[in-house]
Simulated assay, not measured.
Amino acid sequence: MTSPMEMDKLLHVAQSCAPPEAIQLIVQVTEDPHTHTFAKLAEAPTIQKLALTPEGAPYVQLLRLYTTGTWADYLSMAHQLPSLSAAQVAKLRQLTILSLAYQERSLSYATMCEHIGLAKDLRESVRILEELIIEALYQNLFTGRLDGVAERLDVHSVTPRDVPRTADTHNGHDAVFGLLQALRAWRDRSSDAITALDTYKRQVEQKYDARAQTMQEDHAALTDALRNVAQSDTGMVARMRLQETYPDAMDVEANRRTHSKRRSKRTRA
Rank of each mutant, 00 (worst) to 15 (best):
D121E: 09
E114C: 11
R93H: 10
Y138H: 09
Y102F: 08
E131P: 01
L92P: 15
L92Q: 12
V126D: 01
R123E: 11
S108Q: 08
L122I: 06
L118Y: 13
I133V: 01
A110E: 02
L118A: 12
L118Q: 13
I116P: 11
L95W: 10
C113I: 09
L137H: 08
C113M: 13
R127F: 05
K120H: 10
A90F: 01
Y109S: 13
T96S: 13
L137T: 09
C113V: 03
I134Y: 11
E135D: 06
L95A: 09
L141F: 00
A101Y: 05
T111Y: 10
M112A: 01
L98I: 01
T111R: 12
L122W: 08
I128M: 04
E135Y: 02
M112S: 02
Q139C: 02
S108N: 03
E104H: 13
L100R: 07
I134E: 13
R93A: 15
E114T: 10
Q94K: 05
T111Q: 13
L100D: 04
I97Q: 02
L132S: 15
E114K: 05
T96M: 14
E135W: 04
Q103W: 08
A110T: 06
L141N: 09
A136R: 03
M112Q: 03
A119K: 13
K120N: 07
L107K: 00
I133M: 08
S125H: 01
L137S: 07
Y109N: 08
L122D: 06
Y109T: 11
A101R: 14
E130F: 00
I134T: 09
E131M: 06
A136L: 07
C113N: 14
T96K: 10
